[in-house]
């Protein structure tokens, strides 16, 4: 059979289609973990936080974070008795080594607010990424593909909660992964594991048996900056009106 130009023109697209389907690959399986069965969030109970900094240290250990960079940190608020505006907020070294003492009979209210990535369902950080390096996983965790990230820092600026930073040596964006390597193995996050008072609770919003559902029904739970409609999934119990 003579192969004519016509044959080649017909064969080329067919070969391309075959090649493409070969490249598509198969999804990588993680045993016993099905992403479609989970929708992760976090519950932080301000009324239980004692500001010990265990969560901050645990996070830095678990994730090998460089000094001075935090995926979670603890802030201490001091707001006056008469105004919610302009609270005094401190977080020395992320609250890692505790906080300076406060007067025994203070004026106003002191309390601790642990902060972390809110794993927003409509996250501003993923929307601004120009290269598709940051994304919301099918189980609701905002992650960064650090092999794709080019370190432009748009997401760092876009996050209204200040939860991202550019890693000082990798030069790419970095943030809380909700200990993805732990929660996919059935463990809780490092910060929840290390919290001595149960002020932090990992929550699976898709699991009907998760105590989060009962808690959300029976408590006045809020998210940070609800007016931004980010779909934040870090829920705060007993949140003071002065917290930003």
């Amino acid at each position: 059979m003579n192969i004519t130009r016509r044959h080649i023109l017909l064969l080329l697209p067919a070969a391309a289609v075959a090649w493409k389907s070969m490249l598509a690959g198969t999804p990588e399986d993680s045993p016993n973990y099905n992403m479609s069965e989970h929708w992760w969030g976090m519950l932080i109970d301000i009324s239980k936080c004692i500001g010990c900094g265990n969560c901050v240290r645990a996070c830095q250990t678990e994730n090998d974070l460089p000094d001075g960079f935090f995926r979670t940190w603890v802030e201490r608020y001091h707001r006056s008795n008469w105004s919610l505006e302009n609270p005094e907020v401190i977080s020395p070294d992320g609250g890692k080594e505790g906080f300076p003492s406060v007067p025994d009979d203070p004026s106003g209210e002191y309390f601790f607010v642990p902060k972390m990535c809110n794993h927003c369902a409509d996250s501003p950080c993923t929307q601004v990424c120009p290269v598709g390096a940051t994304f919301i996983s099918p189980d609701g965790v905002v992650l960064i593909d650090q092999r794709y990230c080019m370190g432009c820092g748009y997401c760092v600026q876009a996050c209204p909660y200040g939860c991202r930073y550019i890693h000082p040596t990798k030069k790419v964006a970095d943030k809380c992964t909700l200990c993805y390597h732990r929660i996919t193995k059935g463990l809780t996050t490092a910060c929840c594991e290390a919290c001595p008072t149960g002020a932090r609770q990992l929550a699976d919003l898709k699991n009907p048996k998760d105590p989060i559902h009962e808690f959300l029904k029976t408590h006045t739970v809020q998210v940070l900056k609800p007016q931004l409609a980010t779909g934040a999934k870090t829920f705060y119990n007993d949140l003071d009106g002065s917290v930003r």
Binding site: T61, G132, F135, L143, I144, Y180, H181, T184, K185
Partner: peptide, 22 residues
């Protein structure tokens, strides 16, 4: 595969070693 990102990155995160045993 799941959206405008490399789906294998999810598995890469899941494969990282655990330090707190639980």
């Amino acid at each position: 595969q799941y959206g405008h990102y490399r789906a294998a990155a999810i598995a890469e995160y899941a494969a990282r070693p655990v330090k707190f045993a639980g």
